[in-house]
Design a protein around this nucleic acid. Structure first.
Lengths: 235, 235
DNA sequence: CCCACTTTGTGCACCGGTTCACAAAGGGAC
DNA sequence: GTCCCTTTGTGAACCGGTGCACAAAGTGGG
C-alpha cells in the first residue's frame, strides 16, 4: 500500500486533536463574523487558548491547508474542520430524561446551532409525557426503540437519574445507537465500538475542591509543612 | 532536602489521578451502602471502570492504605479520599446565570450531596431576580461581589450566555474567587493561580459526531477511499 | 511455626501528546 | 529576478501517564 503525501489524512487523527477542533471551529466562526479573511496560527491559537505549535500540528493532521508567510483562510478552514468533524451532515439527537437537565438541554441553543437537531424527547414519568418543550412533544420511554428507528437517531443524550441509566444505555445500544452522551452519575458498561462521553457535574466540582483546598492550605501553611515529615504523620 | 518514604504524600498527586478519585469515591459509597467492609483493588477497579494496576497506583499516591492479601477497608478509604479531595469541609457555591441550565444545576441533587452547598443564585434579568428556586431567592448580579464576600463563596459556577461570561469571570476573580466551573461556550482568559474547569455540551456532541461519522464511513467505505487522493477533492 | 495463597505497591518499558526550534515555502518590495 | 520577511509544517527531545509483571507483605490453615 503506497501512501503519498499527507499520511496526515489517512484517518489517524489523535484523540487530543479531535477534542480541540471544535474549539478552533468556534474561534474561526467568531472571526468569520467579524469579517476576517485570513488568520495566522498565532492569532487563532490565542483565540482558542492553546499554544500555536500545537495548533499547527493539529491542523496538519487534517491536511496542509495553510499558506506559509500568510496564514489560514478562515472560511476554507471552517469548511475543512466542519467536514472532518462530520458537521456538514445533520445528526438527529434524542434526549432521554426530561427533568431539569433534560429540559435545559432541549432548550440549549448551542445544540441546534451546527449540525445537531433535537429529534426526540423521552421520559418515563406519565406526568411529563405529552408536555411540549422546545417545539417537541415528550414521548414515553417505552417508545424508545421505535423513535430511534423512525427518526434515524444516531446520538442519544442520557439525562436520567443514575439508577435508570445503564438499562437505558443497553436499550439504545440494542436499537443500534453507538454514540452516547451521558449526564447520569454512573459508569456505563458498553460493548466495544460504542462511544460514550460523560459529563459529570459533581466530579468537576470535586476536582475544583481539591485544588481549592491546596491553595488555601498553602496560604495558611498548615498541613503542607507538617507533611514534610511523612513518618511522623503516617499511621 | 531529604525525603524518606512516601514521596507519594508530599503533595504531588498527578492530575489524572485527581480526576479519578471522585469516581472511586462514588463506587466506594455504593459499596458502603451495600455493607461491604473491605474491597480489593480488582473489584473497586471494575466498579469504577478502570484497570486495577492504575487504581492501585492512584491510591498509592495518597498513602499506603491497603492491606496486602486483604484489600482496602471501605470506610477508611472513603474518609481518606474525601479528605484528600477536600470534601470534609463545606464549600459554598454560587451559580451565576439562572436560565434553564442554572435552574437545572440549582435543583441537581448531586450538587448538595457531598461537601457542596449552593449558597447563592444570581442573574442579570430583573424578570428572574426574586424568584425562589431550590429554597433560594435569585439575587441581582450587581450584588455579585457583596454576595461572594458575605456568604464566603469559594467556587463559582458560570451558567450564563457566552457573551457575558468573561466579564463575570473577571468580576468573581477580582472578588477573590479562584475556582470556576464554566458552562458558557467561551474560552475564558484568567490569571495564573485561578482554576477553570469547562463543561461544553456542544463540544462533546461534536466529538461524538466525529467518531460517529468515522464509524458510518467505515461501513459504507465511501469517503475513506476517495480521500486517498486529497489533491482531487481539495479546493 | 511454617507454608501456601492472596493482594498490595512499584520498577520499568512503553505510548500518546506537547513543545521547541528550525528548515522549507511562499509573498512582496524594489 | 532577487532578496528579505513572515509563517507554516515537522523532526526530535521531552513529559506525564499507563499497564505489565513481580517482589514484598500480610493472612489463614495445619
Amino acid at each position: 500500500m503506497i501512501r503519498r503525501l499527507s499520511q496526515a489524512r489517512e484517518r489517524g487523527i489523535p484523540e487530543a486533536t479531535v477534542a480541540r477542533l471544535p474549539l478552533y471551529l468556534r474561534a474561526l466562526n467568531g472571526m468569520a463574523e467579524r469579517g476576517l479573511a485570513t488568520v495566522s496560527s498565532e492569532d487563532l491559537a490565542v483565540a482558542a487558548g492553546v499554544n500555536s505549535a500545537k495548533l499547527r500540528k493539529d491542523l496538519s493532521h487534517l491536511g496542509s491547508y495553510g499558506t506559509r508567510g500568510v496564514g489560514y483562510e478562515v472560511e476554507y478552514l471552517i469548511y475543512q474542520i466542519s467536514r472532518e468533524l462530520g458537521l456538514t451532515q445533520d445528526w438527529a439527537v434524542a434526549i432521554v430524561g426530561v427533568g431539569n437537565l433534560g429540559r435545559a438541554l432541549a432548550n440549549y441553543g448551542g445544540f441546534v446551532s451546527r449540525g445537531f437537531r433535537v429529534a426526540a424527547l423521552l421520559d418515563a414519568d406519565p406526568e411529563v409525557v405529552g408536555d411540549h418543550i422546545a417545539g417537541l412533544t415528550v414521548e414515553h420511554v417505552d417508545e424508545l426503540e421505535a423513535v430511534i428507528r423512525r427518526r434515524a437517531v444516531s446520538i442519544v443524550v442520557l439525562a436520567t437519574p443514575g439508577a435508570a441509566a445503564q438499562e437505558l444505555a443497553d436499550r439504545v445500544i440494542a436499537a443500534g445507537v453507538t454514540s452516547i452522551l451521558n449526564f447520569a452519575p454512573v459508569v456505563l458498561a458498553v460493548p466495544e465500538g460504542v462511544d460514550i462521553r460523560k459529563v459529570d457535574l459533581s466530579i468537576e466540582l470535586q476536582i475544583l475542591a481539591f485544588h481549592e483546598q491546596r491553595k488555601t492550605d498553602r496560604m495558611t501553611g498548615g498541613p503542607a509543612m507538617a507533611e514534610e515529615w511523612p513518618e511522623a504523620v503516617d499511621l
